[in-house]
Computed example of a mutant assay.
Amino acid sequence: MTVFHRNEKKEPLPAELQGGVVAIGNFDGVHRGHRSVLDRALELASQRGVPASVLTFEPHPRSVFKPDQPVFRLTPAPIRARLLEAMGFRSVIDYPFDREFAQRSAEDFVQSILVDWLKASAVVTGFDFHFGRGREGGPAYLIDAGKRSGFDVALVDAFRDENSDVISSSRIRTLLSEGDVTQAAGLLGYRYTVEAEVIGGEKLGRTLGYPTANMQLPPETELKAGIYAVRFRRPDGSLHDGVASYGRRPTVTDNGAPLLETFLFDFSGSLYGEICAVSFFGYLRPELKFDGLDPLVEQMKRDEEEARTLLAGVTPLGALDAKIAFDLQSGNQG
């Protein structure tokens, strides 16, 4: 898969990726609502025998206009790219979004990016997509521009869940802030997953018989503090079931930076320096302050037992979840 980053925006697109169908959007989360747009692009590309690409923007536009209020990203660019690749896209263009870009006219966006650079044969986006200075470009504008410039436009209506509620990234963020990773997974279509480097810690867990892989998540992460049943993926693709604590460790520290600490079941070895992923399967309990280490260890034993029971019965939510949080080829799920 080809991923074009910001410093490559002026490089010509490889010939084999030109003339394709382009899905446009931020696609933070690549959730079920997004996939109604993305699946339409893949369908059109297959019908026409041309490549399917995704045009998205980095950083998230809201982080540009409100830098003091950074967006809680459901899928940072690397995870988003892997999800899109798993769906079947040939390339992802992470186009640089800044205030200068936001001031470009809608006509400039169409001509310089869609026509001259991507040479798009078709564009697929949501029904409410707007672009260009002052959001001057909307669905009607895009359709007319396509007629003038020789590319087709497909607009996809908002996707609703089984209760007829619109699925959105903001809705999923709210669920995660409440610890409801189960309902969030239902809207995403896969288990919510984070990725970070395993870093050194205070090694207290090791002395208690529960060594953990520690990961620092972005400060804007709004995941509810607490204990979760998780699945842990190493860079080599191996999967391990586990139980994770996210929060500030009130029993042993006071107001430290939030940390994700994962205890991997039936595993021994060093993970330091590895970029690993953690998928969340269930919220077990809130973060608590115990009166000493002995009660903490007793609770950790109960957490482990509950997590093992929960994870023993999980099945993939769909093809994308199978690729993210399961290993169906080898049959190894932990």
Rank of each mutant, 00 (worst) to 15 (best):
L176I: 03
F129H: 11
G179W: 08
T182R: 09
N163H: 11
G146S: 07
P139G: 06
S164D: 10
V153Y: 11
D180L: 03
D157Y: 09
F151S: 14
R133V: 04
L175N: 05
L176G: 11
A145E: 12
Q183T: 15
G138N: 15
D180M: 10
R133Q: 09
V181L: 08
N163G: 06
D180I: 05
S168H: 03
N163V: 13
H130A: 13
G186N: 15
D165G: 00
F129V: 09
Q183V: 15
I172L: 02
V166T: 04
V156N: 03
D157F: 06
A145W: 08
D144I: 11
G132D: 12
V166E: 02
A140P: 08
V166I: 03
N163E: 07
V181G: 06
R160V: 15
V166L: 00
Y141T: 01
S177T: 07
A184F: 10
R133E: 05
V153M: 03
D128P: 10
A145M: 08
G146Q: 04
R135Q: 07
D144S: 10
A145H: 07
I167G: 12
A154N: 03
T182D: 05
S169D: 11
A185E: 02
S169K: 08
L142K: 01
L176M: 03
I143Y: 04
G150C: 07
R160W: 08
K147C: 04
L155H: 03
H130V: 11
R135M: 03
N163P: 06
D128C: 04
G134E: 05
I167F: 08
R148I: 02
R135I: 00
G179T: 10
Q183W: 15
I167A: 13
A140Y: 07
V166W: 00
T174S: 09
L176K: 00
D157E: 15
N163Q: 07
V153D: 10
G179A: 11
T182A: 09
R135S: 00
L155M: 06
V156Q: 00
G134R: 11
D161A: 10
R160T: 11
R173L: 02
A154M: 03
I143W: 08
D165I: 02
F131V: 02
G134L: 07
S168E: 02
Q183I: 15
L155E: 09
A158P: 14
S164R: 06
R160Y: 05
G146L: 00
R160A: 15
R133F: 11
A154H: 03
L142I: 06
A145C: 10
A184M: 13
T182L: 05
F127W: 15
F127V: 08
P139I: 12
A140W: 04
K147S: 04
R173P: 04
V181H: 01
L155D: 12
K147P: 02
S164M: 02
A185Q: 09
E178W: 14
A145Y: 04
D157Q: 02
L176W: 01
A145P: 06
R173S: 00
D161Q: 14
R133C: 04
D128S: 08
H130C: 12
I143R: 12
S177M: 04
S169H: 14
S149G: 13
R171T: 05
